[in-house]
Amino acid sequence: MGNSKKVILLGNFGVGKTSLVRQYVFRKFSDDYMTTIGVRIDKKMVAVNGQEVSMIIWDVAGESTHQKIPNSYKLGAHGIIYVIDVLRPSTYLSIEKEISSLEDLLPNVPIVKVANKIDLLTEKERIEIVNNLPLNDYVLCSAKNGSNVEDAFNKLAESLI
């Protein structure tokens, strides 16, 4: 239990939270969209600085704001991955407020911000969108081709030790 860490994935519906977990845990991706009902739980063992960490990943059904998700799902979390969809501004317009309220609820819990679906952008669009994202210190990734997915989770895992 000492090296088990509860990690929760939050973000709007359809941003690709479940796909990110599937890519990270099983190295699989499916184009079929199936909405998550309630919560699904997966587990991945990772080695961080020579230490084995068991990440128990709570993939919580997407909501427009995390406040609609029961607090008891979030309590006891050791880390958070907050996912946005780079193509849908509605998924990140109020991200600052969301992060701030999460920090109030779970003080000192590390949060990694992940901007997903970059595979759907051309190089030009990517530069344009990235320049306009109201975020700093985030990971650009693609659940579809696996780009930076491992990095995002590993970044969080490192901050959990």
Partner: peptide
């Protein structure tokens, strides 16, 4: 996997 069972049971309880 017992860790996952524990997580799911907690999620059900929470729900």
């Amino acid at each position: 996997d017992q860790d996952m069972v524990a997580g799911m049971l907690t999620a059900i309880k929470t729900f």
